[in-house]
Design a protein around this nucleic acid. Structure first.
Length: 266
DNA sequence: AATGGCGCCAACCGCCGTCGG
DNA sequence: ACCGACGGCGGTTGGCGCCAT
C-alpha cells in the first residue's frame, strides 16, 4: 500500500551542510538530474533526509540563484506582490528569477516589514497604520521588543493574506504600496517596476507562473549547461555568485520584462 | 577588551494537496 | 476508493556575527 517512507529518521544528519555534502549533492544532481528526492540521499551517499536535500538545492546550490540583497526594484516588486498575494512567498519568488521563496521571506521579515512600518504602512494589510488601535500599533511599532516576543508577534501577524487575487487585485491604481513607495525608488528602477507591474501579467496569473517556473522545480535541464559550468560554479560558492559578475539584474530585468510582455500579448 | 543584545539567514518543522500503489 | 508517501509551501528556530555599551 502506498509508497515507501521518505527516509528512516534514524541516522539522518541535521544542521548546516558541509562543503563535502554540497559536493555530493551537486555531483549527484549533475549526473542524475532532479527526479526523486527520496532516493537522492541514498544514491548520493548523504546521511540527509530527501527533503533536506531538496531544500539545500533549491535555496542554496541552484546555479541560477542570485546572491546578495534585493535591489530597490526587486524590493518594490516584492512589496507590490505581497500586497496582492499575501504571504505566498513561492508565488512571489516565481516573479523574481534567481530568488528563492525562503530568501524573499527572510528579506521581508528582516527588512521590508520594518521599512513599511517606518513609512507608516501596515506590512500585513498594506494600509496606513494611523487607524490602528493604540495597543496593536504598539505591537507593530516597537522595535525594542526582545527577540523571542518579537518573533511571536511577527509570526502571528503574517498569518494571513491581506488580499487575495480574487479581491479586486487587478486594480493596480488602488495599490497603496505602489503609489506611496515609488517616490523612494530611483528613476530607472521605477521604470522597471512600472514595466513589470503594468504589463498584464495579473491577467494570466497561472500561465505566467508556469512559464517562470520553467527554471525551477523540475526543469533545470533547460538551457543551462551544468556540465560545462559546474566546477566553475562551485568555485563561486566560496565567494558568492555576485563576486563573479553574475549579479546581472539588467539581464534579469530585461528577461522578466520580455517574458511578461510576451505573455501579455496572448 | 568583554559582553550582552540584536539582526540576519540557513535550515528545520509541520501542514496540505497531489498522486502512486 | 482508499491509504500513505512525496513534494511544496509557509512559519519558526538556532546559531553566528556584528554592534553598542
Amino acid at each position: 500500500m502506498g509508497r515507501q517512507p521518505c527516509c528512516d529518521k534514524l541516522g539522518v544528519k541535521k544542521g548546516p551542510w558541509t562543503a563535502d555534502e554540497d559536493n555530493k549533492l551537486i555531483n549527484f544532481i549533475l549526473t542524475n538530474g532532479q527526479c526523486c528526492w527520496r532516493a537522492v540521499p541514498k544514491l548520493a551517499g548523504l546521511r540527509r533526509c530527501g527533503k533536506s536535500c531538496r531544500l539545500r538545492w533549491t535555496n542554496y546550490l541552484r546555479p541560477d540563484l542570485k546572491r546578495g540583497l534585493l535591489s530597490e526594484a526587486e524590493e518594490q516588486l516584492v512589496i507590490d506582490l505581497h500586497a496582492r498575494l499575501g504571504n505566498r512567498w513561492s508565488k512571489i519568488a516565481a516573479r523574481l528569477p534567481g530568488r528563492t521563496d525562503n530568501e524573499i521571506k527572510n528579506h521581508w521579515n528582516t527588512h521590508i516589514k520594518k521599512k513599511l512600518i517606518k513609512m507608516g504602512m501596515d506590512p500585513v494589510t498594506h494600509e496606513p497604520l494611523q487607524k490602528q488601535p493604540e495597543n496593536q500599533k504598539n505591537e507593530c511599532h516597537n522595535p525594542n521588543n526582545n527577540k523571542k516576543t518579537k518573533k511571536t508577534a511577527e509570526s502571528s501577524a503574517g498569518n494571513h493574506h491581506c488580499k487575495e487575487e480574487n479581491e479586486s487585485v487587478m486594480d493596480n491604481s488602488s495599490s497603496p504600496t505602489k503609489t506611496e513607495n515609488s517616490s523612494s525608488v530611483n528613476t530607472d528602477e521605477s521604470l522597471l517596476l512600472d514595466n513589470l507591474i503594468n504589463t498584464s501579467f495579473w491577467i494570466e496569473e497561472e500561465a505566467l507562473w508556469n512559464n517562470n517556473n520553467n527554471l525551477g522545480g523540475h526543469g533545470y535541464g533547460g538551457n543551462f549547461s551544468w556540465e560545462e559550468n559546474w566546477s566553475w560554479l562551485h568555485e563561486c560558492e566560496d565567494f558568492g555568485i555576485h563576486d563573479f559578475g553574475f549579479d546581472c539584474l539588467d539581464d534579469f530585468e530585461l528577461n522578466a520584462i520580455n517574458t511578461t510582455e510576451t505573455e501579455g500579448k496572448h
